[in-house]
């Protein structure tokens, strides 16, 4: 159906061409589920804290905000620890800030894709840190030396599982008692 009002304006054709030309090629910045606000809410237990919401609603910086929110909010601690290779929230914050800054400087003004950039860099950094951490544990990088160089002492002075303060971390959150777990009203897998 064309709507030519007798004034030479073929409005249907004009609407088709102009909308496709101006909007048809636009692409939103948060194409991946991991960059979406609902997924961040899901990770944080179905609700977003005011801080996370503010970060997520920060206009074109949404994707970066979500990365920060997902890492900063308690419920996302597993993801944050996995991404940064550290269980220390201060490290997550520093890592994410550094990653976002790097991505911002890499992207041209107004360009989309900061979410992808943040995600990629965070994953890479997390992998590097985990690798370094695991190497440290395996002892391969430990300085070698004769056993006599090691400090000696009575075995009784070594900490044991029985005299470790606090013992096993019984109060650590688990999947069943985690305060940020999915609420009853939130869809689950």
């Amino acid at each position: 159906m064309t709507m030519n009002g007798g004034d030479g304006l073929d409005l249907d054709k004009l609407l088709n061409t102009e909308l496709h030309r101006q909007v048809g090629s636009l692409s939103g910045p948060s194409t991946r589920v991991a960059q979406s606000a609902y997924h961040a809410a899901f990770l944080t237990g179905g609700t977003m804290t005011p801080l996370a919401t503010l970060a997520a609603m920060a206009s074109s910086k949404t994707a970066a905000g979500l990365a920060v929110a997902a890492l900063a909010v308690g419920g996302g601690s597993v993801a944050a620890a996995a991404a940064t290779g550290s269980s220390n929230p201060l490290v997550w914050g520093k890592t994410v800030s550094a990653v976002v800054s790097t991505c911002k400087s890499d992207l041209k003004l107004g360009a989309h894709g900061i979410g992808d950039c943040v995600s990629d860099v965070a994953n890479k950094k997390g992998a590097e840190e985990r690798l370094a951490h695991s190497k440290g544990k395996s002892g391969q990088d430990h300085p070698s030396g004769s056993p006599t160089d090691h400090p000696t002492g009575a075995p009784t002075s070594h900490p044991t599982s029985t005299d470790h303060p606090g013992g096993a971390p019984a109060s650590h959150p688990s999947s069943t008692n985690h305060p940020g777990g999915p609420p009853a009203g939130t869809p689950s897998r």
Binding site: V23, L26, S30, S36, A37, G46, M57, S59, S60, T186
Partner: peptide
């Protein structure tokens, strides 16, 4: 983008809409 007149506002509204939809899913 057309309804709000701005890609940034459109992204905010899109995310907000999916969040609402997820809560009602």
């Amino acid at each position: 983008v057309v309804l709000t007149g701005s890609p940034a506002a459109a992204e905010d509204c899109t995310q907000d809409a999916f969040l609402k939809a997820f809560q009602a899913w």
